[in-house]
Design a protein around this nucleic acid. Structure first.
Lengths: 198, 198
DNA sequence: GTGCGACTGGGACGACTGTCCCACTTCGGC
DNA sequence: GCCGAAGTGGGACAGTCGTCCCAGTCGCAC
């Protein structure tokens, strides 16, 4: 095995862990499975990380920090806010369909974090990040549609996050694209009503 | 230990398993933990069930079959459909607040079922049941409000399930009652728009 | 009451887990 | 070239997991 500084090994192990969690679930993400995925030995694992828990915590932090603007409306002007929001949510839906395992992994990591008091803040941080990204999309959409939010944007954002979460969960179970699109439409409808003329 | 027929033991073990999953998560629901919760010996477990997998499958089936009308609007007439739906969703929210661990357990069981192809149908059945209950509530609400659904009720129902799912997930993370109420309001608003005068 | 089948308890099994140890190799600075 | 620190490999550890076995006990039908 090539010699790799511990910091790079940490990164490689986190990537390997994410792949294992996505493919087989967090319960199967054992130290040996992660190490095999990364092509390393067990000793390298515990040289880079004190424990498996530390790795999982780092994984959550990494994956949350990396979360990108998924729900970004395509900014063709001349569209109503409702249309912008709907195409934004549908954009997220395409992202979900392109890599369902990733979103399922995110869901599992949240549930995992929810199960121990000391990890609960990680779940909160994850959702704070989602809300932050949602806020930005909402501000952008309102500005393109030339309207103003009548409800505080953070509140609208939390509602948007809840709606996309519900869409994700139900689609992962049913894989029903039409149902997901109906949810997107209803969500865009409800949210757009929280804005008014500037 | 008193002598108990295997069928009763199965029921007792399922109840014990539900308590363990609720309290500590499915990963901690080992045969020994379940047996301790039920006050039995390991042998009794494998006398009643062939394997832990069989127990978990039975647990999901039981708990889904038992799922009751949570989102039932209080039927005071004279309310608009929107109001009926909102109070219905808020009713579910109270149910969630009263026993968060139970809903978290349901979520975990879904995720668990989603992870193996042969268990995936259990997750589908769970959501089919949710949709069925939602349909009934929606029909009832429309009849009390004296309106008709313009969108097929099964479609409305799936959207309602997605919305309540999102509400559940975000509230379990943030425990933010106001945010949950905002989601309920927005969801009721969106759904009520799918109905019109009879 | 006797016998047989249903049920029980405790201990054991092999597999798998996270973690650790230790002898070894490689590298950068001198 | 040398040396200490950084990084590596393989094997071992104790603990926990699901499952199984077996000797024993109870209760009911006859």
């Amino acid at each position: 095995m090539a010699r790799i500084p511990a910091s790079e090994r940490r990164a490689a192990l986190i990537e390997a862990a994410l792949r294992v969690v996505s493919r087989r679930g967090i319960a199967q993400a054992t130290t040996r499975a992660i190490v095999a995925e990364a092509g390393m030995s067990l000793a390298s694992f515990h040289y880079a990380f004190d424990s498996r828990d530390e790795l999982i915590d780092e994984l959550i932090i990494t994956v949350v920090a990396r979360e990108q603007q998924a729900v970004i409306p395509d900014l063709s002007p001349g569209q109503s806010l409702r249309e912008l929001l709907e195409s934004g949510i549908l954009g997220y839906f395409e992202h979900l369909k392109a890599d369902p395992e990733h979103e399922q992994a995110m869901l599992e990591l949240t549930q995992y974090a929810l199960r121990s008091p000391e990890r609960h803040p990680l779940a909160r941080a994850q959702y704070a990040r989602y809300a932050e990204l949602a806020e930005r999309s909402l501000e952008l959409a309102a500005s393109v549609a030339d309207v103003a939010w009548r409800v505080p944007v953070p509140e609208v954002a939390r509602t948007l996050v809840a709606f996309t979460d519900g869409l994700t969960l139900t689609w992962l179970v049913d894989r029903d694209d039409d149902a997901a699109r109906a949810v997107a439409q209803a969500a865009a409808d409800a949210l757009s009503r929280m804005a008014g003329p500037r």
